[in-house]
Amino acid sequence: MSASIAVRNSGTMLHRSLRHGVRFPMMLVTGLVTPVILLLMFVYIFGGALGSGADGMPGGRSAYLDYIAPSMFLTTVCYGGGTTAVTVSVDMTQGIINRFRTMPISQSALMAGHILGGVLRTLAAVGLIMAAAVGLGFRPHASGVQWVAAAGLLVLVTVGLTCLTIAFGAAAKSPGGANTAVLPLQILPLISSAFVATRTMPTPVRLFAEYQPFTPIINTLRGLLVGGPIGQDAWIAAVWCVGAALIGFTWSRRSFSQRR
């Protein structure tokens, strides 16, 4: 099958995926409203206490907002992953995949629709959360280059988590199962440097928090947007993202080609 056909079919599949994005109100709620609520909660409920200035934490509510805003961008990517997994699972379990499989469409076109659609949908949600954070008073002091680097990292994280959650969705037996499979990814940011400094945690938790993938990603994002040490974290973050993308891609390719 020629490459141009595959590209056109991928375009059709992407179009379909984007339409799904705007027509699945339930998913818009979990993908966008949950992060917004979390943001409000952390700023207005926990912000006063957590922004105490102690143990390397920022002092004051608005400084705390600066501290967690980058974390919320990442959390939004995780919630976007939930939508992606459910969308893929709906496709895989509700018959339409078998129609596509009997048609002269390459598997890569099918997957491209999901990957690109998921990435765009999630990045749109991240953009909206950014706007919400700015509305609440988030004032990043990043240079142009730092902005580009931060955006690049967000895109990389989104690609990685989208591929991974597509694999979850494709392997799940039902859309509900797909949603559950993504849950750990949505909880993981809580056990990282996202909302409190890791050094405030008891040792076993601290060790876990420091070595899990979200901590270097958040540290890098935070460093780029509001300042703070980055160091090795940038490379570690990139490696985690590329790893997630590769594993997710390989795994979903297998699930897509398997009939059930």
Partner: peptide, 28 residues
């Protein structure tokens, strides 16, 4: 070939017309 499976394989989130146009696009 073209196939209608035992269980309907339509896209529930698209309209009837959009489903058909999607198919037509996939056949370019």
């Amino acid at each position: 070939i073209s196939v209608t499976g035992q269980f309907a394989a339509v896209d529930n989130l698209l309209t009837g017309e959009e489903n058909l146009i999607m198919m037509a696009n996939l056949y370019r």
